[in-house]
Design a protein around this nucleic acid. Structure first.
Lengths: 104, 104
DNA sequence: ATAATAGGCAACTAAATGGTTGCATGTCAA
DNA sequence: TTGACATGCAACCATTTAGTTGCCTATTAT
């Protein structure tokens, strides 16, 4: 879980996920296209995404195809975000109550 | 958005959010309790959470009360995670198809 | 008034991070 | 088979980050 959060913390990596979401199965060079970064930097980012299981790769000859794995993202939603959704209204109303108490 | 992702990337900060979720409105010293970290380190973490708007504070005399703001977490769910949920099945089936094609 | 309590500020350090360059390897096409 | 193309590996660098220590300020209670 921690690896996933850390992987998602970087805007370049989130953008790579976005690109794979738009078109799955891209090669390394395709993913480099238009990025202000060397290929090696992109390789590192993809390595981190792969280690976090957010991306799966597939060798096809001399090309390496990258596929988005949406499962960990989904798990963050289920196991982490939903926990804070419950009680959201309660938390807000409590905050409001406290804020109003300020001027007492 | 980037600030929120970065704030959530650290396990200590997520644990602070968990603790506020369990009991809202804690003071700095209460939040330090049981953590293997100095008070100053916790202050920094809370500062980052506050900058990301995940925590709101309220001075009450010499105490500083910390309140969880669940809105940014909710937004991550809405604006970011949901995007990858749509087409999740499609992505997985495509990946499966490609994996099966491996042995051709 | 004074001591204890709650918190703030700033300088410093070690390690992690994001990026680079240079070179090596493996695969495909002519 | 030889050159071009796609990727891999490793060393290096600058900046950010997570944490520390030391000291200062403000509020409360005796």
């Amino acid at each position: 879980m921690d690896e996933v959060f850390k992987a998602l913390a970087d805007a370049s990596r989130r953008s790579l996920l976005d690109r794979l979401h738009a078109r799955n199965g891209q090669t390394l060079n395709e993913l480099c296209d238009g990025l202000a970064m060397t290929r090696q930097a992109v390789t590192k980012h993809l390595g981190i995404l792969e280690a976090a299981n957010l991306v799966t790769t597939l060798r096809h000859g001399r090309e390496k195809l990258h596929y988005l794995n949406p499962v960990p993202i989904h798990q963050i939603g289920e196991r982490w975000i939903k926990k804070f959704e419950r009680g959201k209204l309660a938390a807000l109303s409590e905050l409001k109550r406290q804020l109003e108490k300020r001027d007492e």
